[in-house]
């Protein structure tokens, strides 16, 4: 008689929609509010109308990893830069947007 395949599955260390806030720790996503693409970090200060059209309206809208901005509104108010797969909802990276921006500078 055929037996079921081996059951032991590698446990993936991830949060799917549980967000590891750098300040507050692991929380349900209902504590956070989504803004949109992390592209919104790159405001074209001093740019022209075309640059703002792109910034405000146009989105890559990928099916895989999306880099995006969430705010911990029911927690520390921090804005977070999150890498999330928008098909599986797996979150692979959470950083403070502030830090990211300062490093880039």
């Amino acid at each position: 008689m055929m037996r079921a395949p081996a059951l032991v599955q590698i446990c993936i260390e991830n949060g799917n929609m549980r967000i590891e806030c750098p300040h507050c720790g692991d929380r349900d996503h209902r504590e956070f509010e989504y803004l949109g693409s992390a592209k919104l970090l790159e405001r074209p200060n001093g740019g022209d109308a075309a640059a703002y059209h792109d910034y405000v309206y146009l989105r890559k809208n990928p099916t895989g990893e999306n880099t995006e901005l969430w705010q911990h509104v029911m927690g520390c108010s921090a804005w977070l830069h999150i890498v999330r797969n928008v098909t599986t909802h797996e979150i692979t990276e959470v950083k403070l947007a502030r830090d990211l921006k300062e490093v880039a500078r």
Partner: peptide
């Protein structure tokens, strides 16, 4: 639900 998704499924909130 309030966030980008292609998953055709929602969450509890």
């Amino acid at each position: 639900d309030g966030y980008n998704s292609y998953s055709q499924r929602g969450n509890l909130p």
